[in-house]
């Protein structure tokens, strides 16, 4: 318990008429030195942080949809925890983007108390999001809703992101390096969780294996996009602050092969989803389901641009 009579007292702040808005969740980078290292372009670093932050934010939202919908309570909690870890990473990365280049933050009405990380999460339009498309499709409910699909997607995502964060630990940007050190610890748990479930479903019943294979076939067309290099990623790699994802493909394959091999599953050979309107996720071109996701995620915040959450 906190020192106050009710934990909610602390959430209210001074103005109780705005109780629904809670209060500012403290800047996750409060007091952190966000000075740019020498030779780093602020706009480039910010664009890169948005890419990695948006991957985490959008996937966190998707995984959060499993809350109260998972096959059992333990997995409900596990997926929600993974979503929470990713949300934490997203907050730091969006905060880092805003601190590097305030120009990337949407301008809100004068007097809006919305912090930069929230403005980035809730007030950017679809085309301004820089996440890969792998994190967008809806695995929960509807025609595509299936736990096996989520496990296939989580395996691919966590293998990719763990490899990326391992490398990012030596970023010249001390903020990104610190975020990465922590993310590696968290993603290790995520990847093990996905890997174990993958194996369990593969070796389970005929039905579980059938669903897993179908899930893998559904997810795999977005594999190559993870390892395509955007010009911003080339620049951050050159400046020593980021990672060229094409250099991760081989080591990610080693891990995936390990999982496929014990699961007696062949690496899928399916056509990859190409660019849409000349671009991929990192260029702001997204899947059809992204628009509905953003509508759900952003509508309340957008209805109250002067609200404090």
């Amino acid at each position: 318990m906190t020192d106050r009579e009710s934990v909610y007292d602390g959430l209210l702040g001074e103005d109780t008429s705005q109780w629904a808005f809670g209060t500012s969740f403290e800047d996750p980078l409060a007091g952190v030195d966000t000075t740019l290292p020498d030779g780093v372009d602020a706009a480039v670093l910010a664009a890169y942080c948005l890419m990695l932050g948006d991957d985490a934010l959008i996937y966190s939202h998707r995984l959060g949809q499993w809350a109260s919908n998972a096959p059992d309570l333990e997995d409900d909690i596990a997926l929600s925890n993974i979503a929470l870890d990713l949300l934490g990473q997203a907050r730091l990365l969006l905060g880092r983007a805003a601190a590097a280049d305030a120009g990337c933050v949407p301008v809100l009405p004068e007097g809006s108390p919305v912090p930069a990380e929230d403005a980035l999460a809730f007030f950017r339009d679809e085309g301004a999001f820089r996440n890969v498309r792998l994190v967008e499709p809806d695995d929960v409910g509807g025609a595509g809703g299936d736990f096996a699909v989520t496990i296939a997607r989580l395996l691919l995502f966590s293998c990719y992101r763990l490899a990326l964060m391992e490398r990012l630990r030596s970023s010249r940007d001390p903020v990104l390096a610190a975020v990465a050190v922590k993310a590696v610890k968290e993603l290790t748990y995520h990847r093990d969780y996905a890997g174990r479930w993958f194996l369990t479903l593969a070796r389970g019943t005929e039905e579980s294996r059938r669903r897993l294979l179908a899930g893998l076939a559904l997810v795999w067309p977005l594999h190559d996009e993870l390892f395509g290099t955007h010009p911003v990623e080339t620049l951050v790699a050159e400046q020593g602050v980021g990672v060229d994802p094409s250099t991760l493909a081989a080591e990610v394959d080693v891990v995936l092969e390990q999982v496929f091999s014990v699961s007696s599953i062949d690496r899928p050979a399916v056509a990859q989803v190409g660019p849409v309107a000349g671009g991929m996720g990192r260029e702001g071109r997204h899947c059809e389901q992204m628009g509905r996701l953003l509508a759900q995620m952003q509508s309340v915040a957008r209805a109250h641009p002067l609200g404090l959450w």
Binding site: T2, A30, L84, R91, K182
Partner: peptide
């Protein structure tokens, strides 16, 4: 933070200040 997404950070901060 213990974990990056730990939502207790804000209340820890408030308790320390208080």
């Amino acid at each position: 933070p213990t974990y990056t997404g730990c939502p207790a950070m804000a209340s820890m901060r408030d308790d320390l200040v208080h």
